[in-house]
Amino acid sequence: MTPRKTAFGLLGLVVLMVGMSFAAVPLYDLFCRVTGYGGTTAEGAGSERVLEQTISVRFDASKSRDMAWEFTAPDVRVMDLPIGQTGLAFYEAHNPTDRVIAGQASYNVTPYSAGGYFTKIDCFCFTEQVLQPGQTVQMPVTFYVDPEILTDSEAKFVQEITLSYTFYEIDIPVDEVSLAPAQPADEEG
Rank of each mutant, 00 (worst) to 15 (best):
K5P: 00
T6P: 00
T6K: 14
T6A: 12
A7S: 02
A7H: 02
F8E: 09
G9V: 07
L10Y: 11
V14S: 08
V14C: 08
V15C: 07
V15Y: 05
V18M: 03
V18W: 12
G19L: 05
M20D: 11
F22A: 04
P26Y: 08
L27M: 11
L27T: 12
Y28I: 09
C32Y: 01
V34W: 12
G38S: 04
E43C: 15
E43N: 14
G46E: 13
R49L: 11
R49M: 04
R49T: 09
Q53N: 12
I55R: 00
S56C: 11
R58E: 14
D60Y: 03
D60S: 13
S62D: 14
S64V: 13
A68R: 07
E70V: 10
T72Q: 00
D80V: 11
L81N: 04
P82F: 04
I83S: 12
I83Y: 03
G84F: 01
L88Y: 09
F90N: 03
Y91S: 00
V100T: 14
Y107L: 08
N108Y: 05
V109L: 14
A114K: 09
Y117F: 12
T119W: 02
C123H: 09
C123P: 01
C123Y: 02
F124K: 01
T127M: 13
E128M: 14
E128P: 05
Q129C: 07
Q132Y: 13
P133D: 05
G134L: 01
Q135T: 08
Q135E: 15
M139G: 08
T142F: 00
F143L: 08
F143D: 02
Y144S: 06
Y144V: 07
D146N: 12
T151H: 13
E154N: 12
K156E: 12
E160P: 09
I161V: 08
T162H: 03
L163V: 02
L163H: 06
Y165N: 06
Y168S: 10
E169Q: 10
I170Y: 05
D171K: 06
V174W: 01
D175L: 04
D175A: 15
E176S: 15
S178Q: 05
A185C: 01
D186S: 11
E187N: 08
